[in-house]
């Protein structure tokens, strides 16, 4: 690309003794044998892969044969290139690839003057073209962005937990107050929304209290009657990044988020004790209905899960 065009190739006798043309290897014939052996190993490896494919689908045989084949071929080709070809070193000149000052000025002038000439004479056309293109850019963004999904609206503030929602397991089985023993833990959903991400709730039985007993004393102000018969329920969505807080340490009475190890104190209303989670897990107020099933007193009193801008 930068070579001078020459009238014709200049032929000069060059001795083959020229050190640049000598192979790198001291004993090329031995290297050749080794490279050939290596390539034969490669060839056998590929044959092996073909055979392995037909007689077995064991991943190890396929990987081993293909790997050894490629290794052998690769090593052989590299040895050929490195030891058996002209060792050089060879040199190539670099040339400035930037243009001359005159060429640069000419380019600038062409853009400025021609462009200026056109735009200045036809200002209206220039303006209209820019307007059209700009409008196109804006309106194209509508389908490109707006069609993707719904606006958040109030979705992030809502769950399907309502007043009197029946607590059910992932299979939809309603939960009786007698189902769990002390230290028991269960993932529950409002009936009809089994498996729903924002509704996932972790139900813990802290003590085996009877219907007449006072609720388990949580050290969370204003929530004295949110538990029932020793049960408490918290949103299972971590307030850090929304992972399910499924790790319950019964003796320590903490819930731990398996993703980033935020630690929530169960007895204090799931306030975070350690780690990156900023807020307590929202608590679901519970009650037991006449048939002995666990129900919610009300939905969550705040948005569940991680923080977001619209959250007040």
């Amino acid at each position: 690309m930068t070579d001078e065009p020459t009238a014709g190739p200049s032929l000069a006798p060059v001795s083959l003794d020229d050190p640049h043309l000598q192979p790198y290897a001291k004993h090329p014939e031995r290297v050749q044998v080794l490279a050939a052996l290596s390539m034969i190993i490669g060839f056998l490896g590929f044959i092996g892969f073909g055979v392995a494919y037909w007689v077995s689908d064991q991943n190890q045989w396929l990987g081993a044969t293909l790997g050894v084949g490629l290794l052998g071929l690769g090593a052989g080709v590299i040895a050929w290139g490195k030891y058996l070809m002209a060792q050089g070193p060879f040199v190539e000149e670099r040339h400035d690839f930037h243009s001359t000052e005159a060429e640069r000025s000419a380019m600038t002038a062409a853009i400025v003057e021609r462009g200026g000439m056109v735009v200045q004479r036809r200002k209206v056309l220039g303006g209209l073209a820019a307007l059209g293109a700009g409008t196109l850019g804006v309106v194209l963004a509508f389908p490109l962005i707006r069609s993707l999904g719904p606006k958040p609206g109030t979705t992030l503030f809502q769950t399907n937990w309502k007043k009197n929602s029946l607590l059910v397991t992932t299979e939809g089985r309603p939960v009786l107050a007698s189902d769990l023993d002390t230290g028991g833990v269960l993932t529950v959903f409002p009936q009809g929304f089994e498996g729903s991400s924002p509704d996932q709730t972790i139900l813990i039985r802290l003590a085996q209290l009877g219907p007449e007993d006072p609720p388990f004393p949580l050290s969370a102000p204003g929530r004295t009657d949110w538990g029932v018969q020793g049960y408490v329920a918290y949103s299972k969505m971590c307030t850090h990044l929304g992972c399910p807080v499924g790790l319950y340490q019964e003796q320590d009475q903490v819930l731990v988020c398996p993703c980033h190890q935020s630690i929530f104190n169960v007895l204090a209303g799931a306030v975070p004790e350690f780690g990156p989670a900023p807020r307590p897990l929202p608590q679901l107020p519970l009650k037991v209905d006449a048939a002995g099933y666990l129900r919610s007193q009300a939905g969550y009193d705040q948005a569940v899960g991680p923080g977001f801008w619209e959250r007040p």
Partner: peptide, 13 residues
């Protein structure tokens, strides 16, 4: 039995 810190899963659970 829920040994140690492991939760305790009764037959209702």
């Amino acid at each position: 039995s829920g040994p140690g810190n492991m939760p305790h899963f009764s037959e209702g659970n």
